[in-house]
Write a protein that binds this DNA or RNA. Structure first.
Lengths: 326, 326
DNA sequence: TTGTATGCGTTATCAG
DNA sequence: CTGATAACGCATACAA
């Protein structure tokens, strides 16, 4: 039932090659011919078959996107832009949520390879470096440096950590907590932690650090973590949270405990997602240029696909958004 | 460089047909043979080519997902579950954000058809019914009834609207505002508005209704809308917002104006996304069973793909979550 | 400028 | 139970 270029060819009275040519606009073709083909296309309601194209060209124009969880606002916003720019460049996006499950992440990589994607953007990264290097496909990494071969994109984590911590110190916080992402994953976000440490030590400020679980981030876990933190250290008067989602939990806990923000406790988050749909409480935060990150991720991946070398490292500037929690 | 079943065949010393058989586990095959093929697979590092499979089988095992905007928490959460269940059933998900742009929505439909997706889940719906019927592919619709032919899934919008409005009336609100989604789009969410109207009229409560723009939902627009609402009607003491995102804007505006919640103004939202990552303020809301919606959307689409008739209509129950804003 | 023939990697239809 | 061989729909080297 499906109409193919063969049918078009018969209809117009030329060969399939010619049809293929006008479809791809290759070589010289008379306008008359073009018109007749166009007519036949609408008449027969022809739809090109990308699968056949992909097989023949050995290029699918699909990019795979592996992230931990699309429902996390940072990733949903990043994904929005990745999809947007991919589409602009003629690429489609296959979405994979690893849920930070190492096995699932590996399965997805195989799935994407089997699906002949032209490249992968990795926002999830629990697998080992060795597994990573087996991918053998154009890859761009978000927020993790795997090796010198694989280009990565991140925001200026060190500077973000420094600015956030200095903000709290500058506001005379005496005991500052840092709620960090998991440090074993060796993400570049770890630099936020490093910067935090340097600042508090340098200024002689009392501090406490807790980190989130390695096996994924569940909101309930965040809640428990924050609850325990304030339980163990009721005298905390400053918190640097490594994401806005966590910062919001801190806000909630403070509400619950009756702590005034920012009088008694000052809070600064990270990500800047509080700009999008998820803005609600005016938390102070370090804004990552999410849109830009998505754009460059796509562009650099495509460069790689086209065998032009993209920069190995892209560090984008962050911005302090000071609002009501500091 | 790519290794194909042909290479496997040579290596093992059988025909490609046989290889294909063991790969697909069809017919009788000796264990010895299976083992030898398995060995060859790891030895040659064989990766199946899904594209070739798809072309041959005329089935891609890809489903297309068109939504307005993945960064909207309702859709990101829905998408999470759609992807999850699709994967469970052996399907991949191609993500498309229409941004409520009619032209883009149509382009995406063509793109998905060209990509030979096996079916489409439509969470975005600005195109006309006629365009819709041209899709000619298995489709499941979220929250919109197109025709008797196209199965749809929604939560019990009418009941949700009723419960939300009754909650406010029961708490003695004297002037209730309803911030509705756009009513021209003719979504099933319109029933929330109908239920609201019935309730306020029936109880003789003063009311005001505003609706969001048809051309997409930008947070800034929401802000302006809410701001204007309270400017025009400073005496509002109850708000039923048609999404949690909007409800949060109302919370923000009340904070700004110094209105006490829930003493002076009571607010109830819709969606229940405030359960996931996006929970922060404890807004009272009508919870939609998002996970269930995603699950059933996938299952019913697959039924359709397999030519088993799924139910034409699936209405899932909502739940009132009463928290701090009422 | 246009057409013929072959390949892309896999599945499916037949004989044997 | 196994193996040629023809699809699947399109692109392209090579001819004409």
């Amino acid at each position: 039932m499906t109409v193919t270029i063969k049918d078009l060819a018969e209809k117009v009275g030329v060969s399939v090659t010619t049809i293929s040519r006008v479809l791809n606009n290759r070589g010289y073709l008379s306008n008359h011919l073009k018109e007749r083909v166009q007519e036949a296309i609408v008449e027969l309601n022809y739809q090109p078959n990308e699968i056949a194209r992909s097989l023949s060209r050995k290029k699918s124009n699909i990019i795979g996107l592996i992230i931990p969880d699309i429902s996390h606002p940072f990733f949903s916003e990043l994904t929005k832009y990745i999809e947007y720019y991919a589409y602009e460049h003629g690429y489609k996006v296959l979405l994979c949520n690893s849920l930070l499950n190492r096995a699932k992440e590996k399965e997805y990589i195989d799935l994407l390879k089997a699906s002949q994607v032209d490249g992968i953007i990795m926002g999830s990264q629990t697998i080992s470096v060795e597994d990573f290097e087996l991918i053998n496909l154009p890859v761009i990494t978000i927020d993790r440096k795997i090796s010198d071969e694989i280009p990565y994109i991140c925001s200026d984590n060190y500077e973000g950590g420094r600015v956030a911590t200095q903000l709290l110190i500058g506001k005379e916080c005496k005991k500052i907590a840092h709620i960090s992402g998991n440090l074993q994953l060796n993400l570049l976000a770890k630099k936020r932690h490093e910067a935090f440490m340097e600042q508090v030590v340098q200024h002689g400020v009392e501090y406490v650090v807790v980190e989130t679980d390695i096996n994924g981030f569940d909101l309930k876990d965040y809640e428990r973590l924050v609850h325990k933190l304030f339980n163990d250290h009721p005298d905390i008067d400053g918190v640097f949270a490594s994401s806005d989602v966590i910062a919001m939990q801190v806000v909630n806990e403070c509400h619950r405990l009756g702590f005034q923000i920012p009088n008694q406790v000052k809070i600064v988050g990270y990500d800047g997602i509080a700009q999008g749909y998820n803005r609600n409480y005016m938390i102070s935060t370090i804004e990552q240029p999410i849109k830009e990150m998505g754009k460059i991720a796509v562009e650099n991946l495509i460069k790689q696909i086209l065998a032009k070398n993209p920069p190995a490292e892209t560090i984008l500037p962050i911005k302090l958004l000071e609002r009501e929690t500091t």
